[in-house]
Design a protein around this nucleic acid. Structure first.
Length: 483
RNA sequence: CGCGGGGAAGUGUAACGGUUGCACGUGAGGCUCAUAACCUUAAGGUAGCGGGUUCGACUCCCGCCCCCGCAACCA
């Protein structure tokens, strides 16, 4: 029986076009989704955009556009990543979508209110008139707002609050027992320490005059949802919560929420609290990945080292970019993106590695005779099985760079095998058949990582009734780059 | 203050209480099926510092130094 597997990326905030960090989250999630599909699971892969908030409203005003039109344009850029990065997501949720998202977000709100977890409370904070938003002390430079050079005023307003504190213990226990599996371990410890400190209730709404661009709170005309209920609820609204119970029950709970380390708290504290309140099951796991630095430094517009995924792919192709992200960036830590390292990886692993291996094997196989009907030698089969097992083990804990390394080690083994057996001298059909079987396995293992190249290789291997009978030469999959 | 993670060849990384492994890069040799690709091999690490436990520690414990993350309204 096919098992449902529901995986999500965060929804991206649309105040700017996508950068390499977004690309990373997408590619990592995509690789897991493709891997599960290859395992035979029925996968639903969700991504999308978070489009509300005063920031977007103001950005739109600044350029003299309708807010909706403004966010539409940026959301499209995120959608474009599908083709650019060769993503396989099934649905793209937008929080400004009144048909799909709003009913879910509002249904969830009503549920929380129904069980008595929503209440009125004064919210007090520093408010910058220029920003039209509350600012935190962290935002301030010398006590003034860095954007407006004014001192924010302390104001009070009535907000609806969510009783997160009530679920502190339950959330803590769920994470401790692994019912909600937070990966990697270090993030699990981090969030547990935080939760043990006791969770406070969170502000859940804003008065409409402060925040116009958002989801209206049901039954409270003058209030608009603050980000938590608005954004986090996308994970259930997208699959039918509040609209289509059958579809919702098919997919929920999520198997994995893939997130960046910056939003761990929202996903591993607030979100579980909301779900518990609503009587819904918790997601099975949360995979927290690190951030990407650029040329060893934090990416920033002022330094000018922001990496544009569109440009990298334009120059080197989606497979190469995906490979770099999955192989070079440790999936559970911060990693660095540098053009030199990119080229090094490309030449070593893709051109000299996968590409060259595919060429040598298919060239030998194209000329070979008597391949049909042969069986793979035990040595090769064992090697393939070993790799499948160890790669799957790493994939279970989301060590994607390790998965990739294990698969590429098989290429190394293959190259050694060719040199050892010299099939170009012996024309040994069995050896060539073994190599073809190996290449076939490598292509299928690598397809979640470099889907295009894997597809080309698979197509070049001729099969009959699922059995390999020959191949057509694969030419220059990854042309070498000049240093 | 605190909590959590980490410091290993030029770079990136893995496992492990008992010859530090792997990959890239570098040097030498080999091969020619292949994309000046591939294979073999060499050099290169006193495993941050100082103690302790132990027959024996990179691995466990303690102290110190350095780096990073968290420290709640930030997506």
């Amino acid at each position: 029986m096919r098992k449902e597997f529901y995986i999500t990326t965060p929804i991206y905030y649309v105040n700017d076009k996508p950068h390499v960090g977004h690309a990373y989250t997408n590619v990592a999630t995509d690789a897991i989704a493709r891997w599960r599909r290859a395992q035979g699971d029925d996968v639903f892969f969700l991504t999308g955009t978070d489009e509300h908030g005063t920031k977007n409203q103001r950005s739109a005003e600044k350029v003299g556009e309708e807010t909706q039109g403004f966010v539409d344009k940026i959301a499209d850029k995120f959608k474009d990543l599908k083709e650019v990065l060769d993503l396989s997501w099934d649905f793209f949720i937008r929080t400004s979508d009144k048909e799909i998202h709003w009913p879910g977000a509002q249904a969830l709100w009503k549920k929380l209110e129904e069980v008595g977890d929503i209440y009125w409370k004064d919210y007090e904070g520093f408010y910058c008139v220029g920003c039209e938003a509350f600012v935190t002390e962290k935002d301030l430079v010398d006590d003034v707002c860095p954007d407006h050079k004014t001192k924010p005023e302390l104001i009070k307003e009535k907000n609806l609050y969510f009783k997160l504190s009530k679920y502190s213990k339950q959330i803590e226990k769920a994470i401790e027992t692994g019912e909600l599996n937070v990966q990697p371990e270090t993030r699990r410890n981090e969030i547990l320490a935080f939760i043990r400190g006791g969770l406070e209730d969170v502000s859940f709404s804003r008065p409409k005059d402060k925040l116009k661009w958002g989801v209206p709170v049901p039954d409270h005309e003058d209030q608009v949802m603050y980000v938590w209920c608005d954004a986090l609820s996308n994970y259930i609204s997208a699959i039918g919560y509040g609209r289509d119970e059958k579809e919702f029950n098919k997919w929920w709970p999520a198997d994995v929420h893939v997130i960046g380390k910056d939003i761990l708290r929202f996903h591993a504290a607030i979100w579980p609290g909301m779900l518990l309140s609503a009587g819904l099951p918790l997601p099975k796991s949360i995979f927290v990945h690190g951030f990407i630095t650029s040329e060893g430094e934090k990416m920033s517009k002022t330094i000018g080292n922001v990496i544009d995924p569109f440009e990298v792919v334009e120059e080197f192709g989606s497979d190469a970019f995906r490979y770099y992200l999955l192989r070079e960036i440790p999936s559970d830590e911060d990693g660095d993106f540098s053009i030199d390292k990119f080229k090094e990886r490309y030449n070593a692993d893709l051109a000299n590695g996968l590409g060259n291996f595919a060429s040598r094997v298919t060239t030998l196989a194209e000329k070979a005779e008597g391949l049909a009907g042969l069986l793979v030698d035990e040595e090769i089969q064992n090697k393939i099985t070993e790799t499948a097992i160890s790669a799957a083990k790493e994939a279970e804990r989301f060590k994607l760079h390790e998965v990739t390394a294990k698969i590429w080690a098989l290429i190394k083994f293959g190259d050694g095998y060719i040199n050892k057996h010299k099939p170009w001298e012996t024309d040994d059909a069995q050896v060539i058949f073994n190599l073809l079987a190996l290449l076939d396995a490598i292509a299928s293992f690598a397809s979640p990582i470099v889907p295009k190249a894997a597809g080309i290789i698979q197509k070049s291997i001729k099969k009959e009734d699922g059995k390999i009978i020959g191949a057509q030469k694969v030419v220059n999959l990854f042309p070498r780059l000049d240093a």
